[in-house]
Design a protein around this nucleic acid. Sequence first.
DNA 1: TGCGAAGCCAAACGAGTCAT
DNA 2: ATGACTCGTTTGGCTTCGCA
Length: 795
Amino acid sequence: MLKLRRRPHFVNVFPSTSSVNRLKIPVGFNRNLEGRTTGSVLLRGPSGYSWVVELVRKDDDLFFDEGWADFVRDHSVECGDFLVFRHDGDLVFDVKVFDQSSCEKEAAFHCKCSQGGSEYDRIVGQKRGREDEGVSLDQDCEGLVKRTRESSSEFDRDVGDKEHCGYELLLATKTCRGLASCDENHEGTILKKTGTQDLNLHGGGCTPMVAEFEEKKVAQSFNSSFPFFVRIMKRFNVSGSYTLNIPYQFAMEHLPKCKTEIVLRNLKGACWTVNSVPTTRVHTSHTLCGGWLGFVRSNEIKVGDICIFEFVRKFELRVHILRVGGEDPDRQSGKAGSNVLINRSDATLPKKFVKKSSKVHSKSMKKVQMCDNKGFKMLDKKKYGNAAKKSASVALCSLSRSGNEKQEAAIGGLRMMLALDEEKAAQSFASGFPSFVRIMRKFNVGGSYTLEVPEKFAKNIKQKLPATVTLKGPSGIIWDVGLKADGNTLFFDCGWKIFVEDHSLVENDLLIFKYNGMSHFDVLMFDGRSLCEKAASYFVRKCEHTEYDSRCQTKRKMNETPVEIVHNSSHCGLESSPEKSINNDIETRPSRQPITSAATNKKMRIMGSSTRSVPARKSLRGKDLTTFAAEVKVETGDLEFDQTSMDGDVFSPRYTTGKRPATQVEKANVFLMAQEALTREGFMVVMKPTHVARRFYMAIPTAWVAKHLSKQNEDVILRINKQTWKARFYYHRNRDCGGLSGGWRNFVNDNNLDEDDACVFEPADVGNKPMILDVSIFRVLQAPVPLTQVHPALY
DNA sequence: TGCGAAGCCAAACGAGTCAT
DNA sequence: ATGACTCGTTTGGCTTCGCA
């Protein structure tokens, strides 16, 4: 079974605690070394050459020892240089070298390995398999202002080979320009998925959470003028039932409410026709079935591969396939033209299928042509720009599992999710585009809040930079930052402060800015003390700042960037599933969309994730809300939205917990703690928005209901220590499931339960009625904070 | 009478099963 | 082997109830 690859980084300011002959690995990084404390390490430099270095342990510290001096000498590493190490596993590291100008060290790209002899061959020979399957940091497609890396033969060779690269290869890069060169309609970027990552996240052992995470990430990084949705291939997609569910939202918008044939066109131009069958009683949701298998096989789609379906015209979807599962160089390189692909695929297919496929395709193409002739208008770019975002948002779907399987899967999912984030970090760093590095100084993270772009770096690209650039943090969220020129020096100015605050950057933190050529920087962040990546930076949410940087004259307009995917809250209610946007832990961009209602047009303020709606409840009635354990907080946010609340609490007072958003790590910890506290008799629930706000309904696992509760409505007593709350268990007879409703709200509010908190419910006195459930709360953010009411005028 | 909370139906969708 | 259909869970939203 394939295994998830983690690519954690650490950074070293040379010389820090190490000497020229030995380099200490940050203590915090040791856990990423797969338990290895000795052995030979392979350091792969920017030149593509590798150095063998001995890993030694002294006391509790690990060092790069013998051979390190060679690396230092060959790279002309000097005092004040920065080295960034990416662990690709099996003690193989990719190393980037930055000089004192904060830019990548030119010499490092041209240096050769002075090591030689049998030891090198032995070690490299052992590791060759892995290395070969790995991708150098510089192996991306050439796109634009890229550093010259003549000596990086590996890279050049690849590029040369891939000159005719099909879309798939280009999609595997992060350059928009690369895409544009192949398809003018395509301006999008997409997450790099190297063929080396033996990710098998989805389906084959992957949890829905991880798949959801990944789908969303892909959706975020993909941009298209057409509507699209993202699907990660699960086992049932490529075997078993051989079907693929089309997101409801997408089906509603673009597919008829009847069985239809859809043409799937891969990026090489080859087409397949599949049946799309409405699967719900009201025929609104579609499933791809007949013919889908043919597409899967012809395109050698594997479990874990990521498919992006672009609605390029009526009844036609262009499919981008990102290979994540099993690798085949030919597949990925795109060297094979469409004909080759078809022929090869055909050879592997039953004749029956091949015949059917081509036949149906021909038929469908006629249909498509007919549609065109009838005046089917090309999609309105503006319209579908939004639609695309909608579609992206609907790529996320709820997970559903049952009982222990669900819990086990969720644990696995959380663990994998953490690993996945590191994978993301690795990917985000894996670029051949110019980078620079900056250690945060006082004025960078306070005072004037400016950051100087290294002159050497600025000299190369400033002509291409507009007044505003975008910074994409490890979380995938984008910040607009102004660029101010002062002579030959460029500064991040307006907006930088917000970026700093949102990432809680402090003095001595180290940031790597990777320019991708589109006025856009990917930023990696390292903790100044541990020199390891700032884990929290991956889970940052953009704050709804109550005050904008006063120097900024304008706020960023919504939908301004083509890269971002906004989870449009206008999907809430009538059009979509608000919870799916709000709920999602990995939402990358706070919704700032104007929201209109078919029913009402109340001015509402969209709160951050730590805000929840607490409609006045019985226990509050008669009380002055301002006395409710907290002073009234009047939010002075500056963004107003027309929002429709479809949940009936438009006029409800809204409260903010004042808590910061929880990080994924914290959520995982809470989950694991709760899991450990859980006994066979109990059940555990991680609070979702609908549990602790809005609907205040908590479903109880069906298996547990069947075992412990009668199939009827009944009261349940929730108990913490000696304090009790009465809640109502509602049983859905026709659906044989149920959950807590009446009274549950009081429990939630009285205990300040928040989203992502985990509750363990253990039955006391089994058999007695009403059932008493002892509840243990595991808070994702410690120290419950009393709710703070938000001024009604502002939401 | 108006509004919020409670109650509950049914849509949506992932995933598995079963018929062909 | 294939593909249509069904099931289980989550969640949106409508209706009813009760209080001020």
